[in-house]
Amino acid sequence: MAIELYVDPSLSPADIRRLRAGDQVLITGELLTARDAACGRLARALAAGEPLPVDLRGRIIYAVGPTPAKPGQVIGSAGPTTAARLRPYLEALLSAGMAGLMGKGDWPEETAHVFRSYGGVYLVALGGAGALLAKAITAVDVIAYEDLGPEAIHRLRVERFPAIVAIDAQGNDLHRQAREEWRRRAGGLAPHRSDMAGAAPGQGG
């Protein structure tokens, strides 16, 4: 059963600590968007000791570059992009107080320790489901780096936006755990053919 997660607009350290890798959450509240270009600018501003255009403390950054809204839409399609490309900026963003990053895909192996050491979390949204996920976004405005177009920092209001905790603040890593388990199980299966699926009994859960 999914956990309701309120981010209005920030998460407290206690909120973050309650989340566990594998938890399915429905996020209501406010997200910031930033992907490659915006995260790079934020990290460079931090390195130069310049003020950030937005306070990251307690916030969830959603790595997304949405399509333009059609008439009548709040936002176009808005699914996650690959988070691991933001690895060079991760420490900077966490040290500025970012509570969580949301994207898709796994990270290099040592990354779970980075989230643990800063007390942050990594969430995944469903990659390639931008049309569906846009339905959970109720308002949007651009708040910084407008020149970056789809890569500008947007503020999103979301209502029950579905996500899964993939790395928790204790350093548990859902992708790694799931992959190890399923490699063991899938490797033990007889060669799996779609045309055999009806005939052969399944292996169950």
Partner: peptide, 19 residues
């Protein structure tokens, strides 16, 4: 959910993926 996303995109004529 991926199937639901593609059906929605077809029906509403919106991009299935933002990329």
């Amino acid at each position: 959910q991926l199937v639901a996303n593609y059906e929605l995109a077809r029906q509403e004529r919106v991009p299935a993926c933002q990329d």
